[in-house]
Structure formats: C-alpha cells, structure tokens
Design a binder for these strands. Structure first.
Length: 493
DNA sequence: CCCAGCACGC
DNA sequence: GACGTACGTGCTGGGT
C-alpha cells in the first residue's frame, strides 16, 4: 500500500497467520519456512532489499525462492488455522484490520515542531541546573545518566543506606530514590528523580520526535505492529505513539505538540474500565455487574465492599487500596506485590485480598477456572477465539508455572479487550467510507482511538464512534466510551 | 553489537 | 529460601 499497491482480493498474510497460530514465536518468513517446510532459505545479502532496484540473477533467484516458499506455505498454514480452530480471529479481526492500520499509518499525525524546540530549550536548561546543584553538593562531576556512577555517588561517597541491589550493583531506580528522599539524609536523591524525569522526556520524546517528522508529509507516521504482542494487542514503533507521557504535568505537556490537520480538530474516544467490565462479564459476579449496571465508580464500590462501609464513608486511601486490588487482580498479583504497591505489610495485603475474594466470590472462581482450563487445554483463549499456548502451565518449576498461571489469567482479559477494539476499528473505518466522511482515524492506544476530524462532521463522528465502540460486542455489562475533542492531544481529557 | 538498568504507556 | 503484576518500545551506559 505504501508503494501504491492496494490489494482488493481476499489476501493471505503469512506473518499474521503464523501469529494467530502461535503468537509467541517470531513471524519472519525464514523462521516459518524452517518450521513448516524444514529447509533454510538462502539469506538475502544486506543492502539488497530494494525490490525496485536493479537485481542480479543471483538476487532474483534468491527472491524467487522466497516467494515460492510463501506460496507453498499458504495452503499449509490455512489448513492449520482450521485444525487449531483459530480461523475466526484471523478472518474477522486481524486480516480486515491490516488495511485499516495501513491507512492510519499513511495518514499520520502532525507535530508542532516549533513547540518541541521551545520545550527542548526549557528542559535542557533544567537539566543543566540540576547538574550544577548535584555538583555543588557532591563535589565531583559524574554522568548522572549512568546508574553505575549514580550508585557509587549515593552509596559509597555519600554513604546512604543501600535499599536494594540489582544483578550488577546498587539499585537506583525511582522507587529506591523515593525511599531515600523520605529519609531526608541528602538533597541528592530528589535532584536525581527530577533529572531522570526531564532526561527521559528530552531523550525519548522532545529531541527524538521532531526527527521522525516525514519531510514530504510534515507528519509523524508511526508503524502499528499487528503481530508483536502475544495477547493480540497492537504495538507501535518508529516512533512509539502508544507511550506518550500523560502521568506527570511536565510529561503531559508533550501532548500539546500533537495537533490536528489545518482547520480540523482532534477527537478521542476511550473505553472506560474495559478490562474490569470484561472481568465482570466473564465472572458474572453480581456485585461487580451491579456496580457497572448503575455506572458507579468501580474502585469506590469495591472499597465499600471490602472495607464494609457505606459508599459515602469510603476514604481516598480506601479507594486507592481497592484500585490497586482491582488492577492487580487481572495480573494474578500476590500479597507481596500488593503490599509493595500500597506500602503496607504483607499480612495486611493478604487480608485485603482474602476479603476481596470473600465479597467477590465469583471473581475468585472465574480466575481459578482460567488456570484450570489452561492446564486442561494447554491454552488461554479470548472471546473471539484467539489462543495463546501455555506449555509452562505444566512446569514442575513453581516459578515458571506461576508465571504461566498469571498469563492464563491476563491473556483472555487483555486479549479480549484487544479483539473488541480491533472490531470497532474495522467497523468504524467501513462506516466512515459508507457515510462519505472526510474525518480520519489516526491513532490507537489500546483502549483509545484518536481521530482527525472535520469540524462539520464532529457531531456525526461522536455519534458514529460511540455507536461502533460501545456496540462492537454485546456483553452482560455495557461498554462505556468517553469522548472528547480539542485542538491538541493534551486537551482531550 | 548486545545486555542491563531505567522509564514511558495501557 | 527465593520469588513476588500482564503487554509493549526505546533511551543511555558500559562491556565485548
């Protein structure tokens, strides 16, 4: 499509078929040929991948061999899809999504480069100020980007207490630094936290993104990878537009640089609590279904249940604890993990979890059933029949088995959410064409879609997008979508 | 060139 | 006694 070739027939996609068959593997032609045909392709020499340049006879032969292999593989993989009973996600989701993703990539998104240049100056100044402050206190000049040198400064020179070690030395991550800040033994840890925040923003986003603007289109064209995440999610790279900061105010500012086409506006639509709603649907837990039915604050509702207080007596701390439990549920979190997240004792965390499962007993039995079914069948499966094979679920190594059990819990939930938004994207793209709309879908961030919208179409777009996202599937719980529009990504909140 | 450590998102 | 929450991408430093 990027070179002007648009397939209009029902095409076969080798990588995607292989991804559906076994999402954890690599999906390049060479690997698949070895796996299914049992021989090795002649390697294509570096720098000879330009299909439209001059080719020597040897190069043509090598390329021909590859094309022949793909042709041979098609019927083999297609019957395998049938045999493994995974045709549905292939035919209904992943194949129709390919053209949608190509259109989104080609469309791209505008970046306000001048704004990023200003941010670069501002952040660079801050970095230099922090470097000067640290130098003032510590005496010698070190590279603050080096965890090794930072560790030596904190734990040898300054003799601060070692909180945790890594494989290679002292741990200096944000959690460690925060603990050191709380001890008030030195001003340095606080400086380091600030330094890390700003340096991350500078190196990964502020300096990097302007370099990714295409000189012809003046837009950023991310690549959506449809076969990189084992749960069926998409990933985004070159650049990754699925991890643009939002948590800190400094970081969130970067979203002001993502702007609509001239004369247009951005529109975002995100699924509210989609994974917890899926958990409610799958488990059929009365308490949870009821909370969503009345569109209550799910974390507050959970807190009221586990702390056994009326809704209006739920404190911020109680809600926060409940939120951590809800979050951890879907990942198979342990009492240790929860205790770390909430800064409480492991015994206390264990009580929270026990109490949760007492009140939400169907959730407990559902999560147990996921483990049992994975052990029995050998795979985890989504609502649309996407499978993820889990051989480790039978491991005698407890740690390995425990990891597989967490995957057995998480994959059906995360994967079903991915299936649902894929279906919504396919349907939205079809509707945009049917209704002859000029607005474009440009980004997907797992539970959120972003559109570049013609102002005259705004009301129609809001209605269409909500309808397609909320109506993608019919569940015991309703799916809820939150919509907003604005003149840049920051304002979509 | 690769790995470790770290940090950003959902 | 160790382990300890899913899925990703990408930066820098440091050793080979």
């Amino acid at each position: 499509m990027l070179v002007g070739i648009t397939p209009t027939f029902n095409y076969f996609d080798l990588a995607q078929a292989h991804f559906i068959l076994n999402p954890e593997y690599r999906h390049d032609v060479d690997t698949i040929v070895e796996e299914f045909l049992g021989y090795k392709l002649t390697p294509i020499p570096k720098g000879q991948t330009d299909l439209f340049g001059q080719q020597s006879d040897q190069e043509l032969k090598t390329l021909g061999e590859k094309a022949e292999a793909i042709l041979k593989l098609q019927p083999i993989l297609q019957s395998k899809l049938k045999e493994v009973d995974v045709e549905r996600p292939y035919v209904e989701l992943d194949i129709p999504l390919i053209k949608v993703l190509a259109a989104m990539e080609l469309e791209g998104v505008y970046l306000n480069v001048a704004f990023y240049k200003e941010l670069e100056i501002e952040f660079t100044k801050q970095i230099e100020e922090i470097e000067a402050e640290v130098l003032k206190v510590s005496g010698d000049k070190i590279n603050l980007r080096s965890p090794k040198q930072v560790g030596e400064l904190l734990f040898e020179k300054l003799q601060l207490p070692v909180i945790r070690k890594t494989k290679t030395g002292y741990s200096t991550d944000a959690e460690v630094l925060s603990e050191l800040v709380a001890m008030k033994l030195s001003p340095i840890p606080e400086f380091l936290l600030k330094y890390r925040e700003i340096e991350k923003l500078l190196s990964t986003y502020v300096k990097a993104l302007p370099l990714m603007v295409n000189p012809k289109t003046h837009k950023i064209h991310t690549h959506f990878q449809p076969s990189n995440a084992a749960t069926g999610r998409l990933s985004s790279d070159n650049p990754n537009l699925q991890n643009i900061p939002v948590r800190t105010e400094n970081g969130r500012k970067l979203r002001r640089g993502f702007i609509p086409s001239p004369g247009r506006v951005l529109l975002s639509a995100d699924y509210s609590q989609v994974e917890l709603r899926l958990l409610a649907h799958f488990s059929q837990d009365k308490n949870m279904l009821d909370a969503f039915k009345h569109d209550r604050d799910i974390h507050k509702q959970t807190a009221a249940e586990i702390f056994d207080v009326p809704l209006d007596q739920v404190t911020k701390e109680m809600r926060n604890s409940a939120k951590a439990i809800n979050f951890g549920l879907m990942y198979g979190q342990t009492s240790f993990g929860l205790s770390q997240a909430l800064h409480i004792s492991q015994g206390e965390a264990k009580k929270y979890i026990t109490n949760y499962f007492h009140k939400f007993s169907s959730v407990k039995s559902y999560l147990d059933s996921l483990k049992e079914s994975a052990e029995q069948s050998g795979y985890a499966i989504t609502l649309f029949g996407r499978k993820r094979f889990l051989p480790d679920i039978k491991s005698t190594n407890r740690q390995v088995k425990a990891m597989a059990e967490r995957v057995a819990i998480n994959s059906p939930i995360q994967g079903t959410a991915a299936d649902i938004i894929k279906l919504a994207m396919i349907n939205i793209q079809r509707k945009l064409k049917e209704e002859n709309l000029q607005s474009k879908m440009i980004l997907q961030v797992h539970d959120e879609l972003i559109f570049d919208v013609v102002p005259d179409e705004l009301d129609q777009m809001k209605r269409l997008v909500r309808e397609q996202m909320e109506g993608a599937v019919s569940l015991t719980t309703v799916l809820k979508v939150e919509i907003s529009s604005g003149n840049n990504w920051y304002d979509l909140k």
